[in-house]
């Protein structure tokens, strides 16, 4: 039985994808990289960061990573409204970030910083959400640094731990501004059942989870 396909246009270009494919995946086929923080092709999409919103002509913007393509859909990934929306989300996220990102400083692959550069954000006009209410750090693991203040609650580490490695150690705890990731029943990483596979660091888009071994070293990868 042949897979059913749906046809749509993204930024005016036609594409046909298997039914059920997300707009994000369809756009990737066209070489259009819709910005996203909470999604990674190795993970089940959850649509929590909302950076991948696109205009489908409906009343509200849709998160491309979870929204399935529909036949005849006309999608805009870069309309003014979409870009303004993303910019505001980025500013909100950045307003709570610590002054330094342990990921950007070392391996240089902080996805939030990369987007900040892409959107030309240099100053945050919003009040500093992190000031006076730091979410804290956890340096208990011999290999992994946890900076809760840099965490954007994208759930990538939770899914990396649960759905890639199946170790089921990381979860969320707390409410509102105090929400953060936690290990087991909210013990330190070292005391938890964490097996230090490092998958959480591998999937984390920010400076929240980083390798201790590279701390303080700015890696300049070349040949």
């Amino acid at each position: 039985m042949a897979t059913e396909h749906v046809s749509l246009t993204i930024d005016g270009r036609s594409v046909s994808v298997p039914a059920g494919a997300s707009i994000w995946d369809a756009a990737a086929r066209l070489g259009i990289h819709i910005p996203v923080l909470c999604h990674d092709p190795r993970l089940r999409p959850v649509g929590v960061c909302r950076l991948c919103v696109v205009d489908t002509g409906e009343r509200t913007l849709a998160a491309a990573c979870v929204r399935p393509c529909q036949d005849g859909m006309e999608v805009r990934t870069d309309s003014e409204e979409v870009e303004a929306h993303r910019r505001m989300l980025l500013e909100l996220l950045l307003s709570e970030q610590p002054d330094r990102s342990a990921r950007e400083e070392t391996t240089g692959d902080d996805a939030l910083y990369a987007l900040a550069r892409r959107y030309g954000i240099r100053e945050i006009l919003l009040p500093d959400g992190g000031e006076g209410t730091p979410r804290g750090r956890d340096a208990s693991s011999p290999v992994i640094d946890v900076d809760h203040q840099a965490c954007i609650l994208c759930d990538r580490c939770v899914r990396g731990c649960d759905e890639i490695q199946h170790n089921d150690v990381i979860t969320r705890t707390g409410k509102g501004y105090g929400t953060r990731i936690a290990f087991d029943l909210d013990v330190s990483m070292a005391e938890s059942t964490c097996v230090s596979c490092g998958e959480c660091v591998a999937v984390c888009p920010t400076g929240a989870l980083t390798h201790k071994a590279v701390r303080g070293l700015r890696l300049e990868e070349g040949a």
Binding site: L94, S95, D99, R100, S101, E104, E105, T106, G108, Y113, A116, R117, I121, R122, E123, I124, L125, D128, G216, L217, R218, L219, E220, E221, G222, A223
Partner: peptide, 20 residues
């Protein structure tokens, strides 16, 4: 107001030539 220039330029850490 918060500035991101320093962090974005990765100025704080010691540079290391690396190879993958």
């Amino acid at each position: 107001m918060k500035r991101f220039a320093d962090a974005l330029s990765r100025a704080a850490a010691q540079p290391v030539r690396s190879r993958a």
